Simulated assay, not measured.
Amino acid sequence: MDGNGRWAQQRGLPRIEGHRRGVETVRRVIDSSREFGVRMLTLYAFSAENWRRPQDEVGALMGLLELYLKRELQTFVKNRIRLRTIGRTQELPAGARRQLQHTIEATQGFEDYTLTLALNYGSRGEVVDAARAYAAALAAGEVAPDDCSWESFSRHLYTAGLPDPDLVIRTSGETRLSNFLLLQAAYAEFVFTPVLWPDFGKDDLAQALAEYARRERRYGKTSEQCRATEHAQQH
C-alpha cells in the first residue's frame, strides 16, 4: 500500500491526511476483494523500516491502526473476516497491541475470509526469526536433522498456516518488493500500478486480477505440460 504521502503532498496536505485516506482505501479493497471472491488478502501496513520515519508520523500511523481496528471490528464479525498479523507485533505500542489482540480473538473462529496485516514486518527479519526457531527445534530434538526441507522450515515463518501469495500488487509506480514476503512470493505473479494507494479502487483491483488471470503459471514446467495437466483435470 504505497503512495499515501505523495498523494497528500500533491494536494498540499499533511502526509498524515494521505494515510487517513489510505485507511479508507483499505475498507474499499477489502469489500471489493470479497466481491471478487478473493478469500485471503495481505496488506503491508507498516514495515520494519518505517520506524525511521519522523516520530510524529509514526505515532499518527499507530493511532490510525488502533482507530481502524476499533471502527471495523463489527464489520469483521458481520462479514466473518478473520484477522491475522505477521511481523514483530510485540514491538508495537501497547494500545495498538491490545486492540490487535482483541480483534484477533474476536474473529479467530471465522474461516470465510482472512485479512492479514503485515505490521513491523520485514522478510529478512522473518527469516532470521524462523532460522532461530528452527535451530531451537533441532536442538530440542523436535525436528530431525535429516528432515531439513522447505516444508519443515516454513512452519517457523510468520505465515505458517497461510498459503503462499498468488498475486502481489504494488501501487504508486514503485517496482520493487521492499522486503515483503521474499520467500513466500517465489512463484507469485506481480502487478505494478502507477496508481497511488489512496486512489486505488475497485476497478484497479479488477484490472490487476484480470492481468493475473492472463498469466500462465508453469512452476518450472513447459506450457505444453501445463495445458496437458489442465486438460486432464477438466476431463
Rank of each mutant, 00 (worst) to 15 (best):
D2G: 03
G12F: 02
R15L: 12
G18D: 09
H19G: 03
E24C: 13
D31Q: 14
R34K: 00
E35C: 09
E49K: 05
R52E: 09
R53C: 02
E57N: 04
E57H: 02
G59A: 12
G63S: 05
E66S: 10
E66C: 07
Y68R: 09
R71Q: 06
R71G: 02
T75S: 07
T75M: 06
K78Y: 13
T89V: 05
H102G: 12
I104H: 08
A106K: 04
A106H: 00
Y113E: 07
L115N: 10
L119T: 11
L119R: 07
G125K: 12
A130P: 15
R132Q: 15
R132T: 15
R132A: 14
A137E: 13
A140G: 11
G141P: 12
V143C: 02
A144H: 14
Y158I: 02
T159G: 08
V168Y: 05
I169Y: 07
S172R: 12
S172W: 08
L182Q: 04
Y187Q: 01
F190T: 03
F192T: 10
L196P: 08
K202C: 13
D204N: 11
L205Y: 02
R218W: 08
Y219I: 10
Q225A: 13
Q225G: 12
R227W: 13
A228T: 08
T229F: 03
Q233W: 14
